[in-house]
Design a protein around this nucleic acid. Sequence first.
DNA 1: CAGTCCTCCTGTCGGC
DNA 2: TGCCGACAGGAGGACT
Length: 292
Amino acid sequence: MPELPEVETIRQGLMPVLEGQPITHVVQRRPDLRYPLPQRFAARLKGRRIERLGRRGKYLLGFLDDGMVLVMHLGMSGRFTIVKPGAAAGLGSPNGSGPHDHIVFEVEDGTRVIFTDPRRFGFMDLVPEPSLETTGPLKAMGPEPLGNGFSAALLSQALRGKRAPLKAALLDQRVVAGLGNIYVCEALYRAGLSPRRQAETLVSKAARRQPPTARAERLTRAIRDVLTDAIAAGGSTLRDYAHADGGLGYFQHGFAVYDRDGEPCSRAGCRGTIKRIVQSNRSTFYCPHCQR
DNA sequence: CAGTCCTCCTGTCGGC
DNA sequence: TGCCGACAGGAGGACT
């Protein structure tokens, strides 16, 4: 589920709770999520401090004070809930014992962070910091779209020679990190590019050293903008995280095309209708009229 | 090799 | 109301 903006919002919400305090207690309710959890997972976390909570693509990274990194991925349905010490415990309030509450972290001041994941596509791992970027899931991951390293030139390089539809190419985390089904649809809409277009058609044929095409520039900007806007919207939901059930990460704001099959295109002057198609077995929403 | 399909798992929703 | 199929924000492995 959560794509880059949701994971970033979750990071910002968890940061003040988890950073700096020793982890006093970890409950692990099952041996595996999507993959087996590391051996002695709970014991290895107990007593450690998360010095910094980072993010890479859709991964949350807890940099521990012993040189290890707690790598967390939320899959489709993973979420975190913060329960402050002394929070009213009552019927229906989260206490970490729900059927899909798989991991509970407790820190020194008594705050608990509950990881819930009904579908169990999420996972956690402990890896040594020096090998974080050279092994495992981060090894081949593409550039951070909001970082300095992301540019039309870099995107063009990643798309060069790709015959797959643009939609499929952008879902590939090796091309650019953090995009998922929703934000790929939204970015393509903003860029006015069809999800069905072959990825390599954004790249100038004349080999290398060519300036990026206008399409590649547009897409680069659209990706940055849509993610930035979503993070800003998510940040505004953060103020709610501490009350109610403390759930983080499931904000949804107005998408222009996602899940809007049959609705009129909202682009000024466009008379098109949003259409749903299936690509690589997943829904794509776009306006066939203004996305070319 | 690249591209596409399938699968893991559970919950929810719409149609009949 | 109840049952059943379709679908869900991810990603890796199998297949072509």
